[in-house]
Amino acid sequence: MKWKSLYLLALVCGLLTQGCGKKEATTQTEAKPRTVWSVDKAKAWYKDKGFIIGPNFSPSTAINQLEMWQAESFDTATINRELGWAEDLGMNTARVYLHDLLYQQDSAGFLQRVDTFLDIAQRHNIKPILVIFDSVWDPNPKLGKQREPRPHVHNSGWVQSPGSVGLQDSTQHPRLERYVKGVIRRFANDDRILAWDIWNEPDNINQGSAYGKQELPNKLDYVLPLLKKSFVWARAANPVQPVTSAVWKGNWSVEDSLTAIEKVMLDESDIITFHNYDSAQYLEQRINWLKRYGKPMICTEYMARPNGSTFQSSLPVAKKHNVGMVNWGFVDGKTQTIYPWDSWDKNYTGEPKVWFHDILRKDGTPYSQAEVDLIRSMTGVKEKAVAAQ
């Protein structure tokens, strides 16, 4: 009987060991980042989306991402009203920027506010594209009350994420990893979100603005490894939504013309995104350049009227090629993007005759009735006056 007892003990231990081994294997599998989407998977995701169209959005009462999301300035009334205006135009997405400092400050509170925002967007049939990092404008973000806008200056208070301090300090990478994984994992299976934009213009060094002189001299040396890690972190959260990052400058016509950062952006993206602030000719050229990837495309920034990038010129080209379109700006507000980029150097004393970005005034009336009529014709909604709600 003794040998039987020893045999049974050994058998039980063996089964327990196997069970433990399987559990460890499952944990390792769950932690492994998912692969970049194949062309077929990306096309399957896109096929029932219709014409993706909307603005880059922050409420008119916020000067930047921090003011939009911080508890004391999270303005749900304005968000609801303005997304309602977007719905009236037939828009179905909005590109919205997050910030790593918000997660560091109060991750639970921040995620709850994101959840509230998604509820509001869903009521208006809008599925946002959420932006994780951003390399544009002020490299020194600070939590707390944000400064007032500089009069008549384009995006005078917009901030980068991570800022220069977080970017150059590799010991902060674990904090940034927690942010990326924490946000995406929370909403990884959430049908209210259209896509994740991992990093806005990561290789932008802000030449031509007052912030250019404040940039790290070797900024891109810090960006490249963190960009690679950020894609891995995002896919480790296993989102059902695509992850992407938009190329925005230069020549993408052939693989050899791409920079190291652009190669990462395109190779690691589930769908292809890009920016175009030039005429319809250049928009179509860039679409044709990127067709070699065989994946669905969304232009996540366009529309700078004085540059020839307008709704009238761009939307017909996008429809022709089945490319989604997300213009910069929606309601004229504290970002002041009705003023052009050169307002950093040129003195403006009042509203420009031709708005640079944005569609509506603060009361919801359009800058151009012809523009909103065109947008409605593209989205197929009935014409009606946009009025304050």
Results as ranks from 00 to 15, higher is better:
residue 3 W to I: 13
residue 8 L to Q: 08
residue 9 L to H: 07
residue 19 G to T: 12
residue 26 T to M: 15
residue 29 T to A: 15
residue 30 E to S: 13
residue 31 A to V: 05
residue 41 K to D: 09
residue 57 F to E: 00
residue 63 I to D: 04
residue 65 Q to F: 03
residue 73 S to E: 08
residue 74 F to T: 11
residue 76 T to K: 14
residue 78 T to M: 13
residue 90 G to S: 08
residue 95 R to G: 11
residue 97 Y to G: 09
residue 108 A to W: 00
residue 113 R to Y: 01
residue 114 V to T: 10
residue 114 V to L: 12
residue 116 T to K: 12
residue 121 A to Y: 09
residue 128 P to F: 02
residue 129 I to E: 05
residue 134 D to E: 07
residue 149 P to I: 09
residue 152 H to M: 06
residue 158 W to P: 00
residue 162 P to L: 04
residue 169 D to M: 03
residue 169 D to G: 05
residue 170 S to D: 14
residue 174 P to H: 06
residue 181 K to S: 03
residue 187 F to M: 00
residue 196 W to K: 01
residue 196 W to G: 01
residue 200 N to Q: 09
residue 201 E to S: 06
residue 202 P to L: 07
residue 206 N to E: 07
residue 207 Q to E: 09
residue 214 Q to S: 06
residue 221 D to Q: 13
residue 224 L to A: 11
residue 227 L to C: 03
residue 229 K to I: 02
residue 230 S to T: 02
residue 232 V to D: 03
residue 234 A to H: 01
residue 235 R to W: 04
residue 236 A to I: 01
residue 242 P to L: 11
residue 243 V to M: 10
residue 249 K to N: 13
residue 254 V to T: 11
residue 256 D to G: 15
residue 260 A to E: 12
residue 262 E to A: 06
residue 262 E to T: 05
residue 266 L to S: 04
residue 286 R to M: 10
residue 300 T to G: 12
residue 301 E to G: 00
residue 302 Y to N: 10
residue 306 P to F: 02
residue 307 N to P: 01
residue 310 T to M: 03
residue 312 Q to H: 14
residue 315 L to V: 10
residue 317 V to F: 08
residue 322 N to D: 14
residue 323 V to D: 05
residue 324 G to V: 11
residue 331 V to I: 09
residue 332 D to M: 02
residue 335 T to H: 06
residue 336 Q to R: 01
residue 336 Q to N: 04
residue 338 I to R: 00
residue 339 Y to C: 00
residue 342 D to Y: 03
residue 345 D to W: 10
residue 347 N to L: 14
residue 354 V to L: 12
residue 369 Q to I: 08
residue 372 V to C: 11
residue 372 V to Q: 05
residue 375 I to T: 06
residue 376 R to I: 00
residue 383 E to V: 13
residue 389 Q to A: 15
